[in-house]
């Protein structure tokens, strides 16, 4: 697999289809890190194994790192990363012709303890979409998708309101407000985030249980109808807040309310920017 990835990167860099190639490599300590290649001689630095967890599409909107206007960029995506990319394209943050997409078939990523990531267990896109990617590398894998979806969300929903508040209070109490979850999110691309605005100050920057509550409401709400459950926020969180449960709650709400799943169609608009005249009304006083 890695041979084919290197070969594809080499060919693209050589004939000038891309001026920069984003992939996975190893640092001196043997950890998997993102690598940015400019020369075809460097393709040996590329690497592929089940520790390539990062979502590289995050870098595409980071204008300090990549200027897409300067020429096409090649990027390696897994099935889950590809969903984020589709949302970025639908939101006009990335033009499809500014990038070359190398889809890699993934059979589940593993954490440092060699355990398969929880997001990979319920993943429905181990095989990247061939109609969307420029190249797909790897043999298509057959798999049955587990049907237990949203059990984590339902577990929380089964509690009564006071218990829910206590549960989230316990998690949010330890939030450091480091914003790693926001920084790592491929869809949090605002140049000036409202969390850093101080006039008006929507939520005070100091970490307290109450402020953190508002921060997490804002974070989750801004991803409503957009989040593709790539799980990067939860992976990046240094204090282990189950952010995916919150995101999945909103994914479920959007699915139930608007019959929409983000990251399937690069043409689709987010449900909160559209409406139907017969949307449900049962929550109106």
């Amino acid at each position: 697999m890695i041979g084919k990835i290197r070969e594809a990167a080499k060919r693209m860099l050589d004939d000038g289809t891309v001026r920069l190639f984003l992939g996975y490599g190893k640092n001196g300590l043997g950890d998997t890190v993102p690598v940015f290649l400019k020369h075809k001689e460097d393709v040996e630095a590329l690497y592929w194994d089940e520790t390539c967890r990062y979502n590289l599409t995050r870098y595409l909107t980071d204008r300090d790192v990549i200027c897409l206007e300067e020429g096409p960029v090649g990027v390696i995506v897994k099935g889950c990363d590809q969903k984020s990319l589709k949302v970025l394209i639908s939101e006009k943050q990335v033009e499809r012709d500014e990038i070359r997409i190398v889809g890699v078939v993934c059979s589940g990523m593993k954490d440092d303890n060699e355990e398969i990531l929880s997001k990979c267990g319920t993943c429905d896109s181990w095989n990247p979409d061939e109609t969307f990617c420029d190249i797909v590398i790897g043999q298509t894998v057959e798999r049955k998708i587990e049907e237990d979806e949203y059990s984590d969300v339902e577990e929380v929903e089964a509690l009564d309101p006071a218990q829910r508040e206590k549960l989230w209070g316990k998690y949010f109490d330890r939030c450091l407000r480091c914003y790693a979850c926001r920084n790592v999110c491929p869809l949090c691309y605002c140049k000036e985030c409202i969390l850093e605005q101080n006039d008006p100050e929507w939520v005070p920057p100091s970490a307290s249980k109450e402020n953190n509550f508002y921060f997490h409401i804002i974070r989750a709400y801004h991803l409503t109808g957009r989040c593709t459950d790539c799980g990067e926020c939860e992976r990046a969180c240094p204090v282990g807040i189950p952010l995916r449960t919150i995101n999945r709650k909103m994914i479920k709400a959007v699915k139930d309310g608007f019959d929409f799943v983000a990251g399937k169609d690069p043409e689709a608009r987010s449900p909160l920017t559209r409406f139907r005249r017969d949307d449900r009304e049962d929550f109106i006083t």
Binding site: A162, R164, Y221, G225, A253, V254, F275
Partner: peptide
Amino acid sequence: NYYTRRRMMMLKDLFCFFGIDK
């Protein structure tokens, strides 16, 4: 108000999930 309806529907759902009394 159609946009409002969708937004508030989602916001109310999120509030409930976090245990804020609906």
